[in-house]
Design a binder for these strands. Structure first.
Lengths: 348, 348
DNA sequence: GTGAGTCATTATAACGATTAAGACGTAAAA
DNA sequence: TTTTACGTCTTAATCGTTATAATGACTCAC
């Protein structure tokens, strides 16, 4: 037993051991409720620990047990957007992820990443985190290499995004195809026959592509024709939505509805349409995707698909923890919910 | 020198030492660019480290050096709001804080807190973080006790909020008084004579109070009368703004402008006013505070005060680091910027 | 040629926990 | 009585660093 009566700085388990008249290892066990130590001593030790305001040193604990009970969240955005404007959708997810982590006793390390950095090595490798959650719209191709090396290093990670064949690692995502399908069915039921789509399809976010494909399916099912000219590229900004809408108008093609791949795009599109004196939804119905807070306050309020952000955070964390513990993963697709608002109200 | 030729799991500094033919301590020094080790050996060691994909173990490093190069961000909201709706203003701050941390080589631990928990002990005490950033609107009284005990434990922390006399610890905040003053001067210059205020004043967020007081100053300076009946309480939600506006209308008092203590409140207020067929800004001018993304897209677009969130994150982190290193703190107040939009356009 | 002064590196303790293996009574089984 | 077993606790090794003191080698001055 070490003879360090006075507590110098923060209390250590040795200080408690001394006061309790037991060995340090017993203290360590007692505080983690090991039944290798007598209940009475256990309580005594806990009492002393509380009195001394003792907290287990995370670093020492992690070092010895070789795990950090910490999860790293890596947010990466398209390089075009700066850090002051973060996608609201991801931010709302942040809440549920944090919650999900803390419920399970995990800490959350947050980091925004430029895709250029070698983030893939910086977290799990130095034992900062047990696993990584990757969040970001973006071109899968650009960071596939990093995922491969993550995989090779045996790092545990899950990503939010489209669940597709051939993708590395485990993904959790909204059922974008189904969402696009339902949006379009809704538009058709409102009387739309020429439905435009604003959102990058050829390259870029696979989520957008899935939404588009779902939309096409609905159009075909209704015996309408898919018009490729009624599709305008846009990444996930309002400015791009604005430009996309202008492009559609300039194309001279007729359209009575616009399905925007995201709410931000929709906001921009609405601005453009309004400036051209088109009435929404009378002349053109508009639907977005994501149900960001703005959607319910824009004028007109925006019909959109609400992604289950609460559930998403929960599932992401849950799956990652399963992965870490070598258990099988269950869910990986979350249903979206169509929220009908003014921008696409039914006639009559 | 330990004789462990093969690398078992992740490489350690011993593995590198073996390959470089030097001692482990030399490796440790070399990787931190100590000039106690010859430049040539240093480069050699670095090369080998890179080749082996070696990363310093954070836990071991932290344990030994007794610091974590990690900052904890504690976000706490009024208990009324749930985790799915986080104040956009704080979220936008999150971006700059993350950026500021990573630039300085610090990690960021994020946590949302219910005020009830004993978060005050859970971060610095167990060496998870070197310091804490506290973010949250909220009644100062409710968590003052925690701040006191933080202080007592010698924990370093900074908070975002009103800088007031008698408050524990270091605060960084917008100059809310000045902001309120300028908003109101602007409204008066637009011709307003009866300016209402929606936002909790008597108790609750001191930020709101400061904005109100600034407003009152401007009113008095213009030789107008401050009408206490034209002040409605509201915490920071759109619903409360809605209710507040209705209350003002029901009061029967005349008013031609509403200064809302936050954009969220303003959004709710606009909704209420519009429903009562009041035109904005013709009948009533409306101004918010915060410049959340929604402000520039609402109909009408919302005049507001843009808080310098980018600068705020920077200053918060900077100050905290100063605090940790025992250096003096310089800045603690950030100027806001009035953004005039449609909701309060000048006549003519 | 002995002592002082550099320079580059090594040997060796910490840091504060976890955990396997061993020790010591005491009670039950042989 | 001796053995086995169990409950309870201690001893000691370990995690992978960082930091301090010690070691050699080698130059330089008196």
């Amino acid at each position: 037993m070490s003879i360090n009566e006075p507590i110098k700085g923060k209390a250590t388990s040795f200080d408690i051991a001394y006061r309790a008249g037991v060995s340090q290892s017993t203290v360590s066990r007692a505080l983690r409720d090991s039944d290798l130590v007598n209940l009475e001593t256990r309580n005594k030790i806990k009492a002393i620990a509380k009195e001394l305001n003792y907290k287990v040193d995370k670093n020492a604990s992690n070092l010895r047990s070789q795990q950090s009970t910490t999860i790293a969240l890596l947010l990466f955005e398209d390089p075009t957007t700066d850090d002051s404007q973060i996608n609201p959708f991801f931010l709302s997810m942040l809440g549920s992820i944090t919650r999900a982590c803390s419920v399970r006793g995990y800490d959350l390390l947050v980091s925004f990443q430029q895709l250029s950095d070698d983030w893939h090595a910086d977290y799990a490798d130095c034992h900062k985190a047990d696993g990584i959650i990757l969040l970001g719209y973006g071109d899968y191709q650009t960071y596939q290499q990093k995922l491969v090396s993550l995989e090779q290093q045996g790092t545990h990670f899950v990503r939010w995004g489209a669940v597709r064949e051939g993708h590395i690692g485990h993904s959790v995502g909204s059922d974008n195809f189904q969402g696009g399908y339902e949006v379009t069915r809704h538009l058709i039921s409102c009387g739309a026959t020429n439905i435009a789509f604003i959102g990058g399809v050829s390259k870029g976010a696979p989520e957008f592509l899935a939404r588009y494909e779902g939309s096409c399916k609905a159009i075909k099912e209704a015996n309408l024709a898919v018009n490729p000219k009624l599709q305008a590229d846009a990444i996930n900004t309002d400015l791009d939505g604005y430009k996309g809408a202008l492009k559609l108008i300039d194309s001279g093609e007729r359209f009575d509805a616009v399905f925007c791949a995201s709410d931000l795009i929709a906001v921009g599109a609405i601005k453009a349409l309004t400036e051209q004196n088109l009435r929404i939804p009378e002349d053109v119905a508009v639907v977005g995707y994501d149900d960001i807070p703005l959607a319910s306050f824009s004028r007109p309020t925006l019909t959109t698909v609400q992604q289950d952000t609460k559930g998403a955070g929960e599932v992401l964390v849950e799956n990652l923890l399963h992965l870490i513990q070598g258990e099988p993963i269950v869910t990986n697709t979350l249903a979206g919910k169509l929220i009908v608002r003014q921008s696409s109200s039914k006639p009559g």
